[in-house]
C-alpha cells in the first residue's frame, strides 16, 4: 500500500489507455484501474474504420493493442477494480477499492467514459437477453425472420437498424423527436431501406411477454395515444451518459454531468485531470478520446515536474 504512483488513471478505454501509454513511456510509475471491460466502448464496436493509420479493425483488436502498448512501457493495469472512495484534495491522493485495497498517487487522470443509457421502463430487466439487446453485431442473428423495434434516433440507432435488416423481416424505429440526430448519410440509408418503418415523436412505455418478449407499448407524445405493437425483439440505442455520478460532490460537473476542464484538461482540483467521453465537449470518438488521453498525460507530467 505504501508504494506511491506518479499517476493513477481511472478507466481503461481509449482515453485512459492512451494516457497510460504516454505516462508509462515517460518513465512515470503508472497505475490504470478499470471497472468494466478493458477497452471500454471500443470493445462495443465491431468495426472501427475511421481510426487514422488503421484501414479497418475490430474494436477489440484496437483496444488489445493499446493495452499491450501500455503494459509494454510498464503501466500496471488492474481490471474489475471497483473504487468506493476517492481522496483527491491533498498532494498525495488515494483511492479505496471495494475489496479493501488502497492505492496512492501524486496525480490522477479520470477517464471513466460513458455507458449505454437504458430506458428504465417495465419489462426491460426481464427481457434482457431474451428479446432485448444493446448490440446488433452480437445478437442480430437471433432475430432472423422476426419483426423487431429499434429505439433511438442517433447514428448508432440508424446504422444498427440498417445492419439488422440482414436478419429481421421488418424493423420499426421508434424515436422521441420529429427529426433524427444523425449524419445525413445514416438517415438517408435508413430511409431508403424498404424493411425499415419509422414511428416518430413516440416513446416505448413497456416491454410485454410471457417468458419471451412479444410486444411493446408505444405512446405517441403529442397526442398521448397508446398502441401495442407485436414484435419479437427490441434493440435499444438511446445514447450514452457519462460515468461521473460518483464524482458529483468532488469535482465540478456541468448540467449534463460532464467534467468541466480547461484546455489542458485540468479539473478544479490541482493534480486531477479528466479525459475522453466524460468531459464537456461536442464530439465523442476514439480519435478525440486518444487526443484527450495524450493531453491529460502531458499536463499531469508538467504538474509532477512542478511538484519537485
Amino acid at each position: 500500500m505504501d508504494e506511491i504512483y506518479d499517476v493513477i488513471i481511472v478507466g481503461a478505454g481509449a482515453a485512459g489507455l492512451t494516457a497510460g501509454i504516454y505516462s508509462s513511456r515517460a518513465k512515470q510509475k503508472t497505475l490504470i484501474l478499470n471497472e468494466g471491460a478493458i477497452g471500454g466502448q471500443m470493445v462495443l464496436t465491431h468495426e472501427i474504420a475511421n481510426y487514422p493509420g488503421v484501414e479497418s479493425t475490430q474494436g477489440y483488436s484496437l483496444s488489445n493493442t493499446m493495452k499491450k502498448q501500455a503494459k509494454s512501457f510498464g503501466a500496471d493495469i488492474k481490471s474489475n477494480a471497483k473504487i468506493i472512495a476517492y481522496h483527491l484534495e491533498d498532494t498525495i491522493k488515494w483511492v479505496e477499492l471495494e475489496d479493501g485495497r488502497t492505492f496512492k498517487g501524486k496525480s490522477v487522470i479520470l477517464a471513466p467514459g460513458g455507458r449505454p443509457r437504458s430506458l428504465n421502463i417495465p419489462g426491460e430487466d426481464t427481457f434482457k437477453g431474451t428479446g432485448i439487446s444493446y448490440c446488433a453485431t452480437c445478437d442480430g442473428e437471433f432475430f432472423t425472420n422476426k419483426e423487431i423495434v429499434v429505439v433511438g434516433g442517433g447514428n448508432s440507432a440508424l446504422e444498427e437498424a440498417v445492419s439488422l435488416t440482414k436478419f429481421a423481416t421488418k424493423i420499426t424505429i421508434v424515436h422521441q423527436f420529429d427529426h433524427f440526430q444523425a449524419f445525413e448519410h445514416a438517415i438517408k440509408e435508413a430511409k431508403e431501406n424498404p424493411k425499415i418503418e419509422f414511428v416518430m415523436e413516440s416513446e416505448l412505455r413497456s416491454f410485454n411477454g410471457n417468458g419471451t418478449l412479444n410486444s411493446v407499448d408505444i405512446e405517441h407524445l403529442p397526442t398521448g395515444k397508446m398502441t401495442t405493437k407485436n414484435i419479437e425483439g427490441a434493440f435499444i440505442f438511446v445514447g450514452y451518459s457519462p460515468n461521473t455520478h460518483e464524482f458529483k460532490n468532488l469535482i465540478n460537473l456541468n448540467e449534463r454531468n460532464e467534467f468541466i476542464v480547461d484546455s489542458d484538461l485540468k479539473t478544479n482540483i490541482p493534480g486531477v485531470f479528466a479525459a475522453g467521453d466524460c468531459i464537456a465537449k461536442k464530439y465523442r470518438q476514439v480519435t478525440t478520446a486518444v487526443a484527450d488521453g495524450t493531453i491529460a498525460s502531458l499536463s499531469s507530467s508538467e504538474y509532477l515536474r512542478n511538484l519537485k
Binding site: G39, T45, Y60, S79, N80, C138
Partner: peptide
C-alpha cells in the same frame, strides 16, 4: 460466445 462486446467482459471476469 464470440470475441464480442457482451462476451469479453465475461471472459475478463472469469480470468480474474
Amino acid at each position: 460466445g464470440r470475441m464480442g462486446p457482451m462476451c469479453i467482459p465475461v471472459y475478463d471476469t472469469m480470468e480474474e
